[in-house]
Structures are given as structure tokens and as C-alpha cells.
């Protein structure tokens, strides 16, 4: 098993528990959809798996080892709100150079225009920024991608383009994916398996 979530419990304080004992695992090459109602804690869970947030209890195991803070994290999160995920003081070029993904193949496949590279994040639309967030996650050391509602702010054609590209990349590199979405039609198209967290919380 590649990523294992073991009994993850999270809350902002001991008496305000958001979710309890969430366990599942995702293998290489799998695309697992996560669904639950708004406010359940899907994004928080995504952050925990990517190592940005610490759970109250439970652990995340990647390839048999717990996540360490050292070095490049093979689990990359693509965030729901790109305007909050990109340093507002950096030009887009620098954002891509940081992850060493400034190559023509990725840029062209995602429809990133050369002139956008010279701009600051506030000068791009939400959909345009999200393409950068996707590109940034595709560093060659990435083994897992967590996609948290990454295409809710783009039009259906761009949504379809981004997903076709991401799925192709994942298959090519045998990456695993965890996909958070509210759109069941989309989930059925792109996921190999769907987990409903609300059912899991009831058990």
C-alpha cells in the first residue's frame, strides 16, 4: 500500500472534533475520489495527508514510512483556492522555477501562455492561476497528487483539458491521486474508486 491514512482524528480543540477515525489507503496508479458534504473537513483531511496540518491522533504512512519534514514531499497538494496558494510577491516565472517545472511540455499542455510568466498572481484570473498550481505540483519527484476541488473555478472545457492532461501524466508516471470534489458526474468520469467519508464516519 502506498499511502495509508490510519485512524485520523482532527478538531480545533479536544471538545470540538471535526472528524474521527478516518482510515483508507491509496495505491499507485489509483485515482480515489473523496466525497462528503460541505464543511465535513475534506480540505482539512487533504492538508493532513499532504503534511500541512497535524491530526489530533492517527498517522499518515507513505511507502511504509511516516511523512518527514525533510526534503521534497512526494505527496503534493493542489489547493482549492489558487489565489491563496501562490506567493503574491512573486512573478509566475519564479513560482514555476522554484519547483523546476518550467518546461515547455507542461506549460503548453496546460495552456499557460508565455506572457503570463512575467505577471504577478493578482494579474491573472482564478482559472489561469490554477493551471500554475497544477504545473507546480508536477515536479518529477511527486508520487501522489491530492486535488482539492481544483477545477471548480474553471469553465467546463478547461476543466476537461486539465483533467485529461493530469490523468495522462499520472498514468505515465504511475502516480496515485486523491480527488476531492462535489461534482458526482465529474467524480464518476475521473476516479477509479470513490470513498464517501460520511459513511465511514458513521461506522
Amino acid at each position: 500500500m502506498a499511502i495509508e491514512c490510519k485512524n485520523i482524528t482532527f478538531g480545533y480543540s479536544k471538545d470540538n472534533i471535526l472528524f474521527k477515525n478516518i482510515s483508507f489507503s491509496v495505491d499507485y496508479g489509483e485515482r480515489v475520489g473523496i466525497v462528503a458534504k460541505s464543511g465535513f473537513g475534506k480540505s482539512t483531511l487533504a492538508k493532513i495527508i499532504a503534511g500541512y496540518e497535524k491530526p489530533l491522533s492517527g498517522e499518515i504512512i507513505v511507502d511504509g514510512k511516516p511523512i518527514t519534514k525533510k526534503g521534497y514531499n512526494p505527496v503534493q497538494l493542489i489547493y482549492q483556492h489558487p489565489e491563496k496558494a501562490i506567493n503574491p510577491m512573486w512573478k509566475m516565472e519564479k513560482v514555476l522555477l522554484e519547483e523546476n517545472v518550467l518546461n515547455d511540455y507542461i506549460i503548453n499542455s496546460l495552456g499557460i501562455k508565455k506572457e503570463w510568466l512575467k505577471r504577478y498572481p493578482t494579474e491573472l484570473s482564478g482559472g489561469e492561476l490554477q493551471r500554475f498550481s497544477v504545473a507546480r505540483a508536477l515536479c518529477e519527484n511527486t508520487k501522489f497528487i491530492i486535488a482539492d476541488e481544483i477545477t471548480t473555478m474553471v469553465d467546463p472545457i478547461t476543466q476537461s483539458q486539465i483533467w485529461h492532461f493530469l490523468i495522462e501524466e499520472c498514468q505515465k508516471r504511475n502516480m496515485g491521486m486523491i480527488i476531492v470534489t462535489h461534482n458526482m458526474y465529474l467524480a464518476e468520469k475521473i476516479c477509479t474508486r470513490i470513498i464517501n467519508l460520511e459513511d465511514m464516519a458513521l461506522e
Binding site: D155, P156, I157, N183, Y185, L186, E188, I190
Partner: peptide
């Protein structure tokens, strides 16, 4: 746009 919706073919 219509054909790109996931339920209508998901065509890019």
C-alpha cells in the same frame, strides 16, 4: 461548452 460537461461526454 455543453459537450465538455462531465455528464455530456467530457470532451476537451
Amino acid at each position: 461548452l455543453y459537450n465538455a460537461l462531465p455528464q455530456n461526454g467530457f470532451k476537451p
